[in-house]
Design a protein around this nucleic acid. Structure first.
Lengths: 142, 142
DNA sequence: CAGTATCCACCAGGATACTG
DNA sequence: CAGTATCCTGGTGGATACTG
């Protein structure tokens, strides 16, 4: 997910429902997944589920994200209307990020994704192991 | 979603639950999303929801995917145990792809994602519009 | 028909250094 | 503190041509 295929909402509204399957470029699901699927977005949204957080808090909480990517992820989420950004112009400045109503609305979906992943990750990993093992030796899938 | 960060299931099992939030590299959700989020995977799984399909059928159905990416997507899904591949060695050969039990199990999650996307895509697009409009003119977020 | 092989463009994302 | 700027890499994914 990672293609910036943005179409106008006018054009989208003009499309028939069946076109969604035919042309993925304009598929709403892909547009959403391309944001939510990007490496850190899910983590950030989850981190913000507990309430507003400052930039630094998120940095410490996410662990592994560079400021660049954290900032970029926050910008994308803000642009998509899932997160709001509020600046307090003190010195040093203070910036708080918070989920919008739309952002809070995604939480259940993310939770469902997370629940499924945790419930089935072992099966997936085992499938990978046996698949890889089969190729490793001379093509004997057993 | 797109980083091949694969860890052994032994190592995963050894981790405490809290580590999942701290180190995304081993986060089950990310592992699953990195497969499902990749450009065509969702479309393919959805296309297979209606029953087994041949390679050519999928090509025509997905519309826009190159054979390379379709094949690659199918291989990844097969490796992850979501799709099974069966070859009939006739001339010309015939290959059928089918969702496994695990694959069918993801459908509800995908459906939830799709439902949310279609329900809220307009809000997202509008948010993008006003965000972009605000930057376009001299920084007047209104 | 169902792939594989090769070449190539693009951009996500990391590292590092600097600013208001 | 919260960013921006720059450089650099590796992987994704498209186009095209070829094979069993």
């Amino acid at each position: 997910m990672r293609y910036a295929v943005y179409i106008s909402k006018e054009r989208l509204a003009a499309q028939s429902r069946t076109d969604f399957d035919a042309f993925m470029a304009t598929c709403p699901t892909r547009q959403v997944v391309s944001t939510l699927g990007d490496k850190w977005a899910g983590l950030v949204v989850n981190a913000l589920a507990g309430g507003p957080k400052r930039h630094g808090e998120l940095m410490r909480r996410i662990n592994g994200a560079s400021q660049k990517m954290l900032t970029h992820t926050l910008r994308t989420l803000e642009r998509d209307g899932l997160v709001s950004r509020s600046v307090t112009p003190t010195v040093p400045m203070r910036v708080d990020y918070e989920l919008t109503a739309l952002g809070r609305d995604v939480l259940p979906v993310l939770a469902a994704l997370k629940a499924w992943s945790e419930a089935h990750i072992m099966e997936v990993l085992e499938a990978r192991d046996s698949y890889d093992a089969a190729r490793a030796m001379g093509e004997t899938p057993n």
